[in-house]
Nucleic acid binder design. Structure first.
Length: 640
RNA sequence: GCCAACUUAGCUCAGCUGGUAGAGCAGCUCAUUCGUAAUGAGCAGGCCAUCGGUUCAAGUCCGAUAGUUGGCUCCA
């Protein structure tokens, strides 16, 4: 019998009989591996465990610990859910059901409007079907055969998908699992029995293919796990995320509000929230001034000429608020700051010696967002961007981009976000600007990332029509990713506004323009920050840095002096004058997540010290007022 | 905008199949003067989101409007 050589990820290789399946190899290695394995990566492609090997190959067994293993697991779970829905509601027709980053969903068309209460029944059915432990059987078939199959099942969505496939290019395959057959590329688990723990999370409407012109289907999101512990941990994570919800904390800590009577999606910053914003802005301004930026202020509205010239009235109108008449002229509230910065640029003739210009503004813009997408601070209709525009020459773009990336990293680490992810988006099919410009700009973005030694993902064709870009995502304390920063070239606006500078050669040249936002918007950033810190802000941002708490009225006068003394050090201090027991007041400041509490009673009056209690830590002993002030000032300085 | 759920005191929530509203916290007053996560008593607080309908009777049922929440390609 012919032998083949199989190489494993650790570099070792072994000989097996030709025609052996991946599952048999796993079994030969250890029964435990066969048990844990969900699929196999054969020569770089994820395949079913029962895949047969006919020639030398590299094989990696995928378990639930691998991202690709999870994907197979959750994708198979979506089939299982569809199976359960079909057996409970035979009239159901199915859309698509992929695995997602955290679980899976399936879209389907059924007569009944499902509510969250119906999910339990589907969950139970899934567990029941999983017990039957049916295999996922793959079959390949021609386009006609596939069409006939789904015509017989009267499933218009699958028919639509198949009719767009080309079976001369790719095989059309279906998977059967017990009674349930689905169009699918796979790969899948060997059998549904691997799916042990199920939690269906939400049911919602979703348009067929995400297009609101199409029929709205129902979507169920769910997640599954092989071990109970994993499910429990996931549910605990969801619970923790709920606790940190910025909308909840915003109310609880009196940071901000939104008022339906006064308009949805518009944020009111309360004194404590505004205090935090002020600290953010102060840091932001100083950082920009220290890093070669100039700061600008620009109007909140502009005449239609501006928006016609910029092109916003052509390609951005649906996100802009309607015009208002001023002296019979149409004015628009700004959705972006860029045209204003360009007007400032154009207010005089520029020499190449002026460049680069780095102009930043905390610019408040208003954009129409559909009512259904508004979400606390994260998706709003009015917000302040930490916007900047860089105007430079061709020779400067690379160093400018390097500088922006370096600056972004510095700002993010100041706010406690060390782990960033970078995404480079290149030229889409429809684009303005010459190829050479795109090439040059894209290379400069690439070089900037490489220069900093950063890993990045490339989204081919994912750039805006006016230029390539780098997006930066941050990871918060719960490991969730947020897209925050963006650095975008713009080949459109300099052209439209006919921007120029006089070069060394005495001739007119077009400057390069880069849009750049780091925090994105202060509202959204604040929301992310609240969740990242769970409302317990670091000292330098905390609206109240320390509360001075007299044990009884007897030490009130002395406490007042201490509070005053600390305020003179520039610290944000509150004095708790309430006639309550010490335990009550401590509890109150603890729940308000104030970093420090100073307990002042008879003993402290005698010794002239303060008793320091730290949030979440507890009593940390006595020290002098001055050394406490110095400690705090040092921590503020270090953004500790 | 679309689908679903939701909207009751400042906040968090009860209020069963229709019979005109309840708790805790917060607030105010009084007593207490207290040593590291809730002292006690009392008072006050609501056009039950808004508008309309069904009914002898609506917080409760129906409809509309506004808002909130979860979603609306992470592509078989």
């Amino acid at each position: 019998m012919e032998q083949i050589k199989v190489t494993f990820p650790d570099g070792n290789s072994r000989e097996y009989q030709k025609g052996i399946s991946a599952a048999e190899i796993a079994k030969a290695i250890s029964p435990r591996l066969l048990d844990d394995a969900l699929a196999a990566k054969i020569n770089g492609a994820v395949k079913e465990l029962y895949t047969v090997l006919d020639s030398d190959a590299s094989v990696k067994f995928l378990t639930f610990d691998d991202a690709e293993g999870k994907e197979v697991y959750w994708h198979s779970s979506s089939h299982l859910m569809a199976h359960a829905i079909q057996s409970l509601h035979p009239e159901a027709r199915f859309g698509v059901g992929p695995a997602i980053d955290s679980g899976f969903y399936y879209d389907f068309d059924i007569n009944k409007k499902l509510t969250e209460e119906d999910l339990a029944a589907i969950e139970n059915k899934m567990l029941e079907l999983a017990k039957a432990d049916e295999m996922f059987k793959r079959e390949e078939l021609s386009k006609d055969a596939a069409l006939n199959l789904f015509k017989s099942k009267e499933d218009p969505y699958k028919i639509e998908i198949i009719s767009e496939l080309d079976d001369t290019k790719e095989k059309i395959s279906i998977y059967k699992e017990g009674e349930f057959t689905d169009l699918c590329t796979g790969p899948h688990l060997p059998s549904v029995g691997k799916i042990k723990f199920v939690k269906l999370l939400t049911v919602s409407g979703s348009y067929w293919r995400g297009d609101e012109k199409n029929k709205q289907l129902q979507r169920i999101y769910g997640i599954t796990f092989p071990k109970k512990k994993m499910l429990d941990e996931h549910l605990a994570f969801l619970e923790e995320a709920k606790k940190r919800d910025h909308r909840k904390l915003g109310k609880q800590l009196d940071l901000f509000s939104v008022h339906e009577e006064a308009g949805a999606g518009l944020i009111y910053w309360h004194p404590k929230g505004a205090r935090i914003r002020l600290e953010i802005e102060d840091y932001w301004r100083k950082a920009h001034l220290d890093n070669g930026y100039e700061l600008l202020y620009s109007p909140h509205m502009g005449r239609s000429w501006l928006w016609e010239t910029s092109g916003h009235l052509d390609f951005y109108k649906e996100s802009m608020y309607s015009e208002m008449k001023v002296d019979d002229q149409d004015y628009f509230v700004k959705p972006m700051n860029c045209p204003f910065h360009i007007m400032i640029y154009k207010s005089k003739l520029h020499s190449y010696r002026d460049l680069p210009l780095r102009w930043a503004e905390l610019g408040t813009v208003y954009r129409y967002e559909k009512s259904g997408v508004l979400h606390g601070l994260l998706r709003v209709r009015g917000f302040t961007q930490d916007d900047a525009h860089i105007f430079c020459t061709k020779d400067q773009i690379e160093s400018e981009i390097i500088e922006v990336i370096r600056f972004a990293r510095m700002v993010w680490s100041a706010f406690g976000f060390g782990e960033l992810k970078y995404y480079l988006s290149t030229r889409p099919e429809k684009a303005v600007g010459e190829n050479e410009l795109w090439e040059k700009a894209t290379v400069s973005l690439q070089n900037a990332l490489r220069n900093e030694g950063l890993e990045y993902e490339v989204d081919e064709g994912g750039g805006a029509f006016y230029g390539p870009k780098i997006d930066i995502k941050i990871k918060d304390a719960l490991n969730r990713e947020w897209q925050m920063s963006t650095v975008q070239f713009d080949f459109n606006l300099p052209e439209r506004f006919d921007m120029k500078y006089i070069g060394e050669d005495g001739k007119e040249h077009r400057p390069f323009m880069v849009h750049r936002a780091l925090l994105g918007s202060l509202e959204r950033f604040f929301g992310v920050l609240i969740e990242h810190y769970g409302g317990a802000f670091p000292l330098w941002l905390a609206p109240v840095q320390a509360a001075v708490i007299p044990v009884s009225q007897a030490s009130l006068e002395y406490s007042k002096k201490i509070a005053e003394q600390l305020r003179e050090h520039g610290l944000r201090i509150e004095l708790d004058e309430r006639n309550e027991k010490i335990g009550y007041k401590i509890r109150d400041w603890e729940t308000n997540k104030v970093p420090y509490m100073l307990v002042i009673g008879e003993k402290e009056m005698q010794s002239g010290e303060v008793s320091v209690r730290q949030h979440k830590v507890g009593d940390t002993g006595k020290m002098s007022v001055e050394s406490f002030a110095e400690l705090l000032k040092q921590k503020v300085l270090n953004k500790d």
